[in-house]
Design a protein around this nucleic acid. Structure first.
Length: 421
RNA sequence: GGAGGCGUCGCCUAGCCCGGUUUAUGGCGCCCGCCUGCUAAGCGGGUUGAGGGUAAUCCCCUCUCGCGGGUUCAAAUCCCGCCGCCUCCGCCA
């Protein structure tokens, strides 16, 4: 949730942000009204409660005659207290609901929707082919790396088996990513990929994004769409030592997405699937440092893509295309030869104190306790990365050149060769 | 899945049987000050968090003893449900 002080002191700033996201601004007035009602209820309740406590103290030492009088008056007060308390809790719920409906304040993100991103830079040049390039589906088949037919047979559409060098490629990518993370000082984590509602809600995935989330039948649990979810909840209800920030984690987990509303999009291949594995960077830091850390995350993403020798561009995602929690987001989009366009491979978001307020994570700085920020960034999402590698580094005979950085993790192989069918 | 035990302020711990002045004892740690040539030791004080009254130091109030509900004028303390942890048993990768 956003800082209530921003809502009270700068409601127009919040309205501007909503406007940039293309959303109605009525939530602002709803929340302000709820805030007013809540304060009124607090005062009524607290005053009654103080009165009740005061008389309660007298009762113990009162003489019997006096006692029965006191008991009867305080009985009435007790009823009032209960009534006011009920009022208060409903006012508080209303306030909470209204406040949580407001997405993070996107002061610096470009206005508009999906197509209104700002291009930050282009790195490398899309490869020119002197032969007709094969798409990753065909390459995956030739190499014995990706089995889409059997994925569909066993699990349905948007599922796949990675086999042989396909599986090896994933392990190699995980190792390369984790090596980079370790060298950059990240703590490696394997988090649970099933979580309770609190974690899902706290990270902002039960809002508009709820349609995309798998719920476990009869269990009140969810499958995560990214390890951002367990990692944001990791320090919930904690006060972190400010001197130890930033806390940097690199988490490996499967990611499950319903992909509701994307029927017909990317129906072939493994660009858009219901499950993939991912190494995700997740950082807790100070609010002051968050923007700088955001750029660091972007740089780590770029250097990983550089190691894979891919051509890509970096965009500043427009407000309307941000998640509920993000104040700003940069995507790295790699060139996919057979699609003739750039596709998102990694994404990094600055969630400022939006998630930590919901999940009750704060920091102690000397004698102060202050909010902290969370940021997340993809180091490597396996499936799309494999697509980009296969398509970009393919050769005329259907073999695929292995980027240098990946070779040590593939037994020193420089080329992946087609296998006999 | 079955049986039993436990969950108190950063950590450890007292209080709970016999409800009231208890945010709650003591120790450790931490912070401030004193003492000492420096260090150690010693002495004194402070140290849960949140929300309101306030723009605010101070001050005042309310909530906070795993979570939720109940009993009661009043609950850390009594009752019920849930969650978590530990031990034993069963089952199992």
């Amino acid at each position: 949730m956003i800082d209530p002080r921003i809502l009270r002191d700068e409601p127009d700033r919040v309205r501007r942000s909503l406007h940039k996201r293309g959303m109605p601004t009525t939530v602002v007035d709803d929340a302000l009204a709820a805030d007013g009602r809540r304060k009124g209820s607090i005062q009524k309740f607290e005053q009654k409660r103080a009165q009740q406590k005061e008389i309660g103290l007298k009762i113990k030492k009162a003489a019997p005659a006096e006692k029965s009088v006191l008991l009867s008056t305080t009985k009435e007060i007790s009823n009032d207290v209960k009534a006011y308390q009920a009022d208060l809790s409903s006012a508080e719920q209303e306030w909470d609901r209204a406040l949580k409906a407001i997405p993070n304040v996107a002061d610096d993100a470009p206005a508009g929707g999906e197509d209104d991103f700002v291009l930050i830079e282009t790195v490398g040049t899309p490869r020119e082919f002197d032969f007709e390039p094969r798409d990753h589906i065909e390459l995956g088949k030739l190499l014995g790396a990706i089995d889409i037919e059997r994925g569909a047979k066993v699990s349905g559409s948007r599922f796949y088996f990675l086999t042989g060098v396909g599986a090896e490629l994933e392990f190699a990518l995980i190792n390369l990513a984790m090596e980079q993370a370790r060298e950059a000082g990240f703590t490696q984590v394997i988090p649970p990929s099933m979580v309770k509602p609190r974690a899902m809600e706290g990270t902002g995935f039960l809002g508009q994004a709820a349609d995309d989330v798998y719920r476990i039948e009869g269990q009140d649990m969810y499958l995560v769409g990214t390890s951002e979810v367990p990692m944001a909840a990791y320090h919930s209800d904690e006060i972190l030592d400010g001197a130890k920030l930033p806390l940097r984690y690199a988490a490996f987990s499967p990611c499950f997405r319903k992909e509701a509303g994307s029927h017909g999009k990317d129906t072939k291949g493994i660009i858009r699937v219901h499950w993939f594995d991912k190494v995700e960077m997740f950082v807790y830091t100070t609010l002051e440092d968050a923007s700088a850390e955001h750029l660091r995350l972007l740089n780590w993403e770029k250097s990983f893509l550089d190691k894979l020798e891919l051509a890509y561009r970096v965009i500043d995602v427009a407000a309307g295309d941000l998640g509920l929690s993000a104040a700003r987001k940069y995507d790295c989009e790699a060139w996919i030869p057979t699609q003739g366009k750039y596709r998102e491979l990694t994404s990094t978001s600055n969630c400022t104190d939006f998630q930590t307020r919901r999940l009750d994570t704060r920091g102690r700085f000397g004698s102060d306790i202050k909010p902290v920020a969370t940021l997340n960034g993809t180091l490597c999402a396996m499936t799309r990365t494999i697509v980009a590698i296969l398509e970009t580094h393919q050769q005329a005979d259907g073999s695929v050149r292995v980027p240098k950085a990946l070779q040590p993790w593939l037994g020193g192989r420089e080329v992946l060769e087609p296998v006999a069918p």
